[in-house]
């Protein structure tokens, strides 16, 4: 069962990446830094959704990942426009 090692390795690496992004999100220091961290975290989440779809063998996870990616993209753009003072 070498593939199980693959699952564990990839998920551990993704979790570490998520935690490091979260540290930047907490540390700040300004709103822009937090949005940058949020953008990175949402991309990591999209990728891990696709990988979890492979683990559980569920095709529907790809659609979930696509919608999650689109919503994250729109959210980041709206927050950025707000910070810019255009809203």
């Amino acid at each position: 069962m070498e593939l199980n090692y693959l699952y564990i390795t990839v998920l551990v690496i993704l979790s570490i990446a998520f935690i490091i992004g979260m540290l930047r999100f907490i540390k700040g220091p300004t709103a822009s830094d937090r949005v940058v961290a949020l953008d990175t975290i949402s991309i990591i989440a999209t990728a891990s959704l696709v990988f979890m779809g492979y683990i559980f063998n569920r095709y529907i996870y790809l659609d979930v990942a696509l919608i999650y990616g689109v919503l994250g993209f729109i959210g980041v753009i709206i927050i950025a426009r707000y910070l810019e003072g255009a809203l």
Partner: peptide
């Protein structure tokens, strides 16, 4: 590709930090 991708995602998070 999956292993390479996860390592680059980790690298991106380290870069952010």
């Amino acid at each position: 590709l999956v292993l390479l991708g996860s390592i680059f995602l980790l690298l991106g998070a380290v870069g952010i930090y």
